[in-house]
Simulated assay, not measured.
Amino acid sequence: MTEDELTRVLLVDDEHDFLQTLSERLKMRGLRVDIALGGEQALQKLSSELFQVIIVDLSMPGMDGLETTQRIKEMNPSLEVIILTGHGTVRSGVDAMKIGVSDFIEKPVEINNLLEKVRIARDRFAKSQSEKTRTVLTGIATRQGW
């Protein structure tokens, strides 16, 4: 199984047709993809399922992409979030980076560019998890006197 086939991605957008199309395109390239229609549904899925990379639309009714990202980061700071938007501004890009997004990409996105951003985010997530595991194991070994 390739790394791409192990990569779990959650797509978050309020446009169902866009979600379906992008989901299929990413699945065809080997990623394991789930979708959420908006921020609330994304948070529900994140509370019960494991993902490495979350791709969030910036402009959604109700909970927008920035609020969704902020809540995701509160749940798990090591999750990698990519903001995807058709209405990006420098200000929204700066705000997104301040709350810890991995990347900020404008629609329409070229699929190979998005795949590369997902792979970079996945690798960053894996490194973060590895560092956490090493820290925990070091703490256990120290307490046990090993």
Rank of each mutant, 00 (worst) to 15 (best):
H87I: 09
Q70H: 08
A42F: 13
P61C: 04
M28C: 11
L137T: 03
R119L: 14
K107M: 01
L43R: 04
M28Y: 12
E49G: 03
A42V: 09
L84Y: 03
T21S: 00
E49Q: 14
K98I: 05
S59M: 02
S102R: 06
H87K: 11
M63G: 01
L79S: 12
G39E: 06
E110S: 08
H87C: 09
P108S: 04
I83M: 14
E74F: 09
V9W: 00
L46D: 03
I82V: 12
V90H: 10
I99G: 05
I83H: 11
P108Y: 02
L19S: 01
H16N: 04
R124E: 11
I54D: 04
L84A: 02
Q44D: 13
G139K: 07
T138N: 15
S130D: 08
A126F: 00
L84E: 01
R8Q: 15
T133S: 07
T138Y: 10
D103K: 06
E131Y: 06
L6S: 06
L137D: 04
G62P: 00
E40Q: 01
T2G: 11
M28I: 14
V9C: 01
F125V: 01
T7I: 14
T69A: 11
G62C: 05
R124A: 15
L137S: 03
R119S: 12
I83G: 03
G100P: 11
I140A: 15
Q41W: 03
S92A: 07
I54W: 00
D4F: 08
F104Q: 02
E24W: 13
I35E: 13
I35H: 05
G38Y: 08
R91D: 09
R143N: 10
E116M: 15
V9R: 01
V90C: 08
E5M: 09
R25T: 15
M28N: 10
I82A: 02
K73E: 13
A121T: 03
L46P: 02
R134I: 06
E110K: 14
E24P: 00
F125N: 01
E116A: 14
E131D: 15
Q44M: 08
L10W: 14
V109A: 07
D4N: 13
A36N: 06
T142A: 09
L43I: 02
V33H: 04
A96E: 05
S128A: 14
I54G: 01
G62K: 00
V101F: 04
T68V: 03
L46E: 04
D34P: 07
E3R: 15
L31C: 08
R32I: 09
F104A: 05
I99S: 02
Q41I: 13
Q70F: 09
I140Q: 09
R71H: 07
E15M: 11
I120E: 13
V33N: 03
K98H: 11
G39C: 09
M60N: 01
V101D: 05
I72P: 00
R8N: 14
S48H: 03
D14A: 00
A126R: 13
P108E: 04
V109N: 00
L10A: 12
T68L: 04
M28Q: 14
R25L: 15
T2H: 11
I72Q: 02
T142L: 10
Q129S: 12
G62I: 05
L10F: 11
D123V: 07
G38F: 11
R8D: 09
E24H: 15
T135F: 11
